[in-house]
């Protein structure tokens, strides 16, 4: 397996002129980035009113992801730390505005002005300490805090990420939750090593019906188009986690989920006016392994 780019050099060094060039010359990269961006835009779930919005593209690079936003009529501001990548974006004559900046230093935007944000394959870079002065936690905090502030209430941020491992995904997600976002992770094609893609779907503001993370792709025989991913295992199930607090706390809660917990939850639901099945002796009983 090739080593992760994140482990090779800081992003402003790794994404040099050569690497940036690949983003205009490799049709494979172009196609993948376009697909990821389209899915991210779909998950942004902007109001279906045809109005074009002001969006943010974090780690916009050479502007491949931004082009998807333009094709859908939106205005966007792209932020990237690599001058070489932005130079390529200029060459491509992207329509969004480009800003050279480091998301780990916090976004320098006014409060509540952005209608939505996407980020394609960039945020995991924050988990690396590339300089002695870099502390991933501080940078994640600065990023998510400033992202939260810049978004309009109820607006979403959809961040497609390649976390190196479970711990890294937890780290990223926990800082998102701490900043005040609600939402969770959507995993498309969870059983395919090649096509598996993760999106943090975050909503600015307290959890609500609309902030629940939507379902991932990969069910109902819908297959993804990467060549070697047509095995049936792709299409079996989908793993979606939807939460608005760090997983650690949730794990604790899980242990206590007995009949009482279920009854309490059902009561809460009833008070909210949701239709809930009546309590019976079967409520919260353990199922046999086989029916």
């Amino acid at each position: 397996m090739t080593s992760r780019p994140e482990l090779q050099a800081p992003p402003e060094i790794f994404y040099n002129d050569d690497e940036a060039r690949k983003y205009t010359s490799s049709s494979r990269i172009i196609e993948i980035q376009a697909k990821l961006s389209e899915r991210a835009l779909e998950l942004l779930a902007l109001p279906n009113d045809g109005v074009h919005r002001l969006l943010l593209d974090i780690g916009c690079g050479s502007g491949l992801s931004g082009e998807t936003l333009t094709e859908n009529g939106h205005q966007w501001i792209g932020l990237d730390i690599s001058q070489s990548m932005l130079d390529v974006a200029l060459e491509r004559e992207v329509e969004g505005d480009l800003v050279l900046g480091d998301m780990g230093q916090g976004l320098d935007l006014r409060t509540g002005v952005i209608d939505g944000a996407i980020s394609i394959s960039a945020v995991q870079w924050l988990c690396n300490a590339d300089k002695s002065s870099h502390e991933p936690r501080i940078r994640l905090k600065a990023f998510f805090g400033s992202l939260y502030r810049s978004l309009a209430r109820g607006a979403r941020a959809v961040l497609q990420v390649y976390p190196e491992n479970l711990a890294q995904r937890e780290l990223i997600l926990s800082f998102a939750m701490r900043a005040g976002f609600s939402g969770g992770v959507v995993v498309d094609f969870p059983h395919s090593t090649k096509s598996r893609k993760e999106y943090l779907v975050l909503t600015c503001g307290p959890p609500s019906l609309s902030s629940a993370a939507p379902r991932g792709k990969g069910e109902d025989g819908e297959s993804c188009s990467d060549e070697d991913s047509s095995g049936d295992e792709d299409n079996q199930s989908v793993c979606v986690s939807d939460r608005h607090r760090p997983r650690k706390k949730q794990k604790l809660n899980k242990k206590m989920k007995g009949r009482e917990w279920v009854l309490r939850k059902k009561e809460q639901r009833r008070r909210k006016g949701t239709a809930v099945p009546a309590d019976t002796k079967y409520t919260a009983r353990k199922r046999k392994a086989r029916f």
């Binding site: 002001l54 205005q75 501001i77 505005d97 480009l98 800003v99 230093q105 916090g106 976004l107 320098d108 935007l109 006014r110 002005v113 952005i114 400033s146 810049s150």
Partner: peptide
């Protein structure tokens, strides 16, 4: 850079309380 973007940007240098416009 368009003025749209200028209108959204503010300076976030440490210690600065009002970095806009």
């Amino acid at each position: 850079m368009r003025l749209l973007t200028h209108n959204m940007l503010s300076s976030n240098i440490k210690g600065v309380t009002n970095g806009f416009p």
